[in-house]
């Protein structure tokens, strides 16, 4: 798979801010929530590449993908007032909203999306152009590490759940893994991500930034 890298045009590099929690950035989503058009443009310039990359698996048609990206950013605006910088980085917050939309679309399209061919052989962070694209910030790096360490059933289960959006029952049916085990893989996998993010936040708050 992996054709050559194709950075969304106009995406610029600004979206992976090195310092995602400066006062300015914290204020950005607040300004969006307040209806500031300038802030919307700023959010777009930072995160459109990320969101595009998350949505682009949905279709080969750029118009269709754009449609989804548009929906996602409308949602970002609608949800912006709920953003709590203590809970997550902007990128994580936006990715969370994006995931909802993307999976929603997949479900509605009735496509049981088996994401792109599984890439278990490919260690994340190596030659994966997609990954470079999703180079967000520290927080994503933490999540990426956790994801990279997943193996076997747990990895498979989490991928079906997180990326493909299958329900736990569907996963159990598809894989033959008992439902209880599916749930516990998911819970433990996610707990680990959560812990990492939390540890990261704690470190940040203690003055790293």
């Amino acid at each position: 798979m992996l054709g050559e890298q194709s950075a969304p045009s106009g995406a610029g590099s600004a979206y992976h801010s090195m310092n995602p929690r400066s006062a300015d950035d914290t204020a950005l989503l607040i300004r969006v929530a307040e209806g500031d058009p300038g802030a919307v443009r700023e959010v777009l310039s930072r995160y459109s590449a990320l969101v595009w990359s998350l949505a682009s698996g949905l279709s080969k048609d750029p118009h269709e993908v754009e449609d989804v990206v548009q929906d996602i950013f409308v949602d970002v605006w609608r949800s912006a007032k709920r953003y709590d910088p203590k809970m997550a980085s902007e990128a994580t917050f936006i990715a969370t909203i994006a995931r909802r939309r993307v999976i929603d679309r997949r479900r509605r399209a009735g496509r049981r999306v088996d994401p792109e061919p599984l890439e278990e052989e490919l260690a994340p962070g190596e030659n994966d152009p997609g990954l470079r694209q999703v180079e967000l910030d520290d927080e994503a790096a933490q999540a990426r590490e956790v994801v990279a360490q997943l193996t076997g059933d747990r990895r498979r289960v989490l991928e079906l759940s997180v990326v493909s959006g299958l329900t736990h029952r569907e996963i159990a049916a598809d894989t033959g893994i008992p439902l209880g085990t599916v749930k516990s893989h998911i819970r433990r996998g996610l707990a680990e991500v959560t812990e990492r993010l939390k540890a990261r936040r704690a470190a940040l708050e203690e003055g790293a930034i």
């Binding site: 798979m1 992996l2 054709g3 050559e4 890298q5 194709s6 969304p8 045009s9 106009g10 459109s48 990320l50 595009w52 990359s53 998350l54 682009s56 698996g57 279709s59 080969k60 048609d61 750029p62 993908v65 754009e66 809970m87 997550a88 994580t92 917050f93 990715a95 969370t96 909203i97 994006a98 995931r99 994401p115 792109e116 061919p117 890439e119 490919l122 994340p124 994966d128 997609g130 990954l131 694209q133 999703v134 967000l136 927080e139 994503a140 933490q142 999540a143 990426r144 956790v146 994801v147 989490l158 991928e159 997180v162 990326v163 996998g189 996610l190 707990a191 991500v193 959560t194 993010l197």
Partner: peptide
């Protein structure tokens, strides 16, 4: 939020669809 972070972090192929 953890799910969102993992979703963003999950390795995926480079998009062949460009805006």
């Amino acid at each position: 939020l953890a799910v969102g972070a993992a979703f963003a972090a999950w390795p995926r192929g480079g998009a062949d669809v460009v805006p």
